[in-house]
Amino acid sequence: MDVVKLLGDNVRRYRKLAGISQEELSLRTGVKRSYISDLERGFRNPTVRVLGKIAEGLKVQPSQLLILDGTSFK
């Protein structure tokens, strides 16, 4: 299992469920929009600190971003 890809898919899924853009998530977290884009595509391996910021911006627990839930949300 590629955990970086899983994380990116979950960030995208929760962001879309929240109805916010990458730009809005960037504003909420202080993380650059391009970094969020790279993260969602599985090109970035974030630090625990960044993972926490993203989770806070999405209003989910950090662990939720690392759980394989069996759904495919593209």
Results as ranks from 00 to 15, higher is better:
D2N: 15
D2C: 12
D2M: 13
D2T: 09
D2E: 12
D2P: 15
V4G: 03
V4S: 11
K5W: 07
K5S: 09
L6V: 09
L6K: 10
L7F: 15
D9A: 14
D9H: 13
N10T: 11
N10H: 07
N10W: 05
N10S: 06
R13G: 07
Y14Q: 11
R15L: 07
R15P: 08
K16W: 08
K16F: 10
K16Q: 15
L17R: 13
L17T: 08
L17A: 12
A18L: 08
G19I: 00
G19W: 04
G19F: 04
G19P: 03
I20S: 01
I20H: 02
I20Y: 01
S21L: 01
S21K: 03
S21R: 02
S21V: 00
S21E: 00
Q22T: 06
Q22A: 07
E23D: 11
E23L: 12
E23A: 15
E23R: 14
E24I: 10
E24D: 11
E24S: 08
L27I: 04
R28A: 08
R28T: 00
R28E: 04
R28L: 12
T29I: 00
T29R: 10
G30A: 02
G30W: 02
V31S: 06
V31Q: 05
V31G: 07
K32G: 09
R33A: 13
R33Y: 02
R33G: 07
R33P: 04
S34F: 04
S34L: 05
Y35D: 05
I36K: 02
I36M: 05
I36V: 10
S37M: 03
S37P: 01
S37F: 02
D38L: 13
L39W: 03
L39I: 08
L39K: 00
L39R: 01
E40C: 04
R41W: 06
R41G: 08
G42V: 11
G42Q: 08
R44D: 09
R44M: 09
N45H: 10
N45Q: 12
N45G: 09
P46W: 03
P46D: 09
T47A: 08
V48I: 10
V48M: 11
V48T: 03
V48D: 04
R49I: 13
R49C: 08
R49H: 13
R49L: 13
V50M: 11
L51N: 07
K53Q: 10
I54W: 01
I54Y: 01
I54H: 01
I54C: 02
I54P: 00
I54Q: 00
I54V: 15
A55C: 11
G57P: 02
G57S: 05
L58C: 08
V60Y: 07
Q61N: 15
Q61D: 15
Q61M: 12
P62K: 01
S63A: 14
S63D: 15
S63P: 06
S63N: 13
Q64L: 14
Q64C: 11
Q64R: 14
Q64S: 14
Q64F: 13
L65D: 00
L65N: 02
L65C: 03
L65A: 03
L65W: 00
L66H: 07
L66D: 07
I67P: 01
I67R: 14
I67V: 11
L68P: 00
L68K: 12
D69L: 09
D69F: 06
D69K: 12
D69N: 13
G70A: 03
T71Y: 10
T71C: 06
S72M: 09
S72K: 14
F73V: 09
F73Q: 13
F73P: 05
F73K: 13
K74F: 04
